[in-house]
Computed example of a mutant assay.
Amino acid sequence: MKKFMLFIGGLVALFILLANLGPMILLGLSIWLLYVIFKKFAKSDSTAGKIGWVILGLIVLSITFSNIFAVIGVAAAYVLYLVITNWRKEDNDQVVHEMKDDDPFTNFERQWAEINN
């Protein structure tokens, strides 16, 4: 049942990721353009040039805010990553199996493995 729920969750996350792929690309492009505009603004010496770069930066910033829904796609990609890692994890991955031994080192390793899980 756990694998089935992981499959359904992964399928939903994949569809959300594919639906938001375009806005994610535009968001990345607009963030890159904002970086380039900032670098050009910092290199500009004239006041008119700085005003022009600020205006262009505000236009690109408005495009960036219009693609803010791409964050949902990034979250879906993260959920898809979590589903894939949990799918591959085995159900019985204990480091030390419980033994009926009174050896203090074995008991310590078993208790440490229980704490980490």
Rank of each mutant, 00 (worst) to 15 (best):
V36C: 01
W32N: 05
G28A: 10
G10R: 12
L14K: 07
F69R: 03
A48N: 06
L14H: 04
K50I: 02
I84P: 00
T47S: 00
L18T: 13
P23Y: 07
V54M: 11
S46H: 03
I72L: 12
F41M: 02
G22A: 10
V12I: 15
I25E: 08
L26F: 12
L58F: 06
S44Y: 00
T85L: 04
F15W: 11
M24W: 08
L33W: 03
I68P: 00
A19P: 05
M24Q: 04
L80Q: 14
W53P: 04
A77D: 04
G22M: 09
I51L: 14
I16K: 11
V71L: 13
L82F: 10
A76K: 13
V36P: 06
A13M: 10
S46A: 04
G73A: 12
L33R: 10
A19M: 14
N67W: 14
L34D: 01
L82D: 15
W32T: 07
W53C: 03
A75V: 15
T64K: 05
W32G: 03
V83Q: 03
I68D: 01
A42E: 06
S30Q: 12
A76D: 05
A19V: 14
I84S: 06
V83S: 08
A13Q: 07
L11F: 04
G10I: 07
I72V: 15
A48S: 09
L29D: 08
N67I: 15
L80H: 12
A75I: 15
N67D: 08
G52V: 02
V60D: 01
K50P: 03
L82M: 08
F15K: 04
G49E: 08
L17T: 10
D45I: 00
L27T: 06
Y35T: 03
A48Y: 00
S66M: 15
V71T: 05
F65A: 15
V79Y: 12
V54G: 04
L58S: 14
L21N: 02
G22D: 02
L27C: 04
N67T: 14
A42V: 08
L29W: 10
I31C: 07
V74L: 13
V12W: 11
L18I: 14
T64S: 15
I51M: 05
L82A: 14
F65S: 09
A19C: 09
S66H: 10
V74T: 09
S62R: 08
V12R: 07
A13R: 13
P23A: 03
I55H: 00
A75P: 06
F69C: 00
W53E: 00
N67Y: 13
L18C: 12
L18R: 09
S30D: 04
L29S: 05
F65Q: 02
I84W: 09
T47F: 02
S66Y: 15
F38P: 09
K50D: 03
I72D: 02
T64G: 10
Y78P: 01
N20V: 09
G28S: 08
G49Q: 03
Y81R: 11
A48E: 06
T47C: 00
M24L: 12
I63W: 09
I16H: 10
G57D: 00
S46D: 05
G49N: 02
S62A: 13
L14M: 06
A70T: 10
S62C: 14
G52C: 01
L17V: 07
I31L: 05
